[in-house]
C-alpha cells in the first residue's frame, strides 16, 4: 500500500470529505510525526508503535571496498518499535 492508496481508502470510507482534505489530513499526520522526531521528541501510538530517535557518536569507519578510513560525523537516526497489539496481530493473535 502506498500513500496515495492509503488516501484513496480513507476517502472511500469518508464520502462526505473532499479527497484533497483527506490528502491534507494524511500528510499532516506524517508531517507532525516527522517534526516531533526532528525536535528530538518521541511519538507514542499505543497499540501501533513508537517512533523515537537515537543519537550515534562520530566514529572512524572504513570504506569496505578500498579499506580507506573515513570519518563519520555524529548523527541522529529515527527508530520504530512495534506496539504490542500490532506485534500480536502480525503473529495471528487478534
Amino acid at each position: 500500500m502506498t500513500k496515495s492508496e492509503l488516501i484513496q481508502r480513507i476517502s472511500d470510507m469518508n464520502p462526505h470529505l473532499y479527497q484533497r482534505d483527506v490528502e491534507r489530513i494524511v500528510s499532516t499526520i506524517f508531517d507532525e510525526i516527522g517534526e516531533a522526531l526532528a525536535d528530538g521528541k518521541r511519538v507514542e501510538l499505543r497499540g501501533f508503535g513508537a517512533f523515537s530517535v537515537k543519537d550515534r557518536d562520530s566514529r572512524v569507519g572504513r570504506n569496505p571496498r578500498t579499506g580507506d578510513t573515513v570519518y563519520v560525523d555524529a548523527k541522529r537516526t529515527p527508530f520504530f518499535k512495534t506496539g504490542k497489539q500490532l506485534r500480536e496481530r502480525l503473529n495471528g493473535a487478534d
Partner: peptide
C-alpha cells in the same frame, strides 16, 4: 515469528539530522 521493520526515507533522515 513475524516482525515489523520500519525504514525511514532519506527525506525524513535528512530532516532529523539537519535539526540535530
Amino acid at each position: 515469528r513475524k516482525v515489523l521493520v520500519f525504514r525511514a526515507s532519506h527525506v525524513l533522515k535528512n530532516r532529523i539530522n539537519k535539526a540535530f
